[in-house]
């Protein structure tokens, strides 16, 4: 596994964590609606997770930035912006006195984030696999395991050119070596 694969593996883990956080938030909100929890407890519980969640997401973005995974970074930027904006305006914490008034909005936001983290989970997962496949693309034996993603593989080659310079060079070398082989191998194995 190369650096990029590690990166995406890490992204997968973080996305999964964030995903679970959001599910937890949503469950807590529906508890509140059913009056299983009072708003003060709810807010004190959820507020513990607000900053970690934002930080986790920001961390991910920073890693994307350093690794030059520009597409991933771009996808994450709007959410980063939203979080930063909220923190700057001091609106990031849940307010027990306003929670019922803002509950629909919070829920909407949580569902949106849930969907986003879910997508980014799959995206990172895919990128991870793709990177690994690509990484091992030179050997037929290794490529076997990922051969069921031929159609996903192809565009990835181009994508990975966006990596860090040393990676790029490595990849350029590899790409030069494989260009003809890879598709044919994969195509044949897929069949």
């Amino acid at each position: 596994m190369n650096g990029e694969a590690w990166l995406f593996l890490f992204a997968v883990v973080v996305a999964a964590l964030l995903l679970f956080t959001m599910i937890f938030f949503i469950i807590m909100f529906s508890d509140l609606e059913c009056d299983y929890i009072n708003p003060i407890d709810l807010c004190s519980k959820l507020n513990q997770f607000v900053i970690p969640e934002s930080v986790g997401h920001a961390l991910l973005a920073v890693i994307f930035l350093f690794n030059g995974a520009w597409i991933s970074l771009l996808l994450n930027l709007p959410l980063i912006g939203m979080n930063v904006n909220k923190i700057i305006n001091n609106r990031h914490m849940y307010d027990a006195t306003e929670i019922f008034r803002t509950l629909p909005q919070h829920k909407k936001e949580c569902f949106f984030k849930l969907a986003f983290y879910l997508l980014s989970f799959f995206f990172s997962n895919h990128s991870n696999i793709a990177t690994q496949v690509h990484d091992r693309g030179t050997s037929c034996r290794r490529a076997k395991g990922t051969a069921s993603y031929p159609q996903l593989m192809l565009p990835k080659h181009t994508k990975h050119y966006g990596g860090l310079f040393h990676m790029q060079e490595v990849m350029v070398d590899k790409v030069e070596q494989i260009p003809i082989k890879t598709p044919s191998i994969l195509a044949s194995e897929a069949l």
Binding site: E33, D35, N38, P39, A96, T97, I99, F100, R101
Partner: peptide, 14 residues
């Protein structure tokens, strides 16, 4: 749906 006044809203109608 909404409440106005001086109170703490503890549940949806409490």
């Amino acid at each position: 749906s909404r409440f106005h006044g001086n109170f703490f809203l503890r549940s949806t109608d409490l």
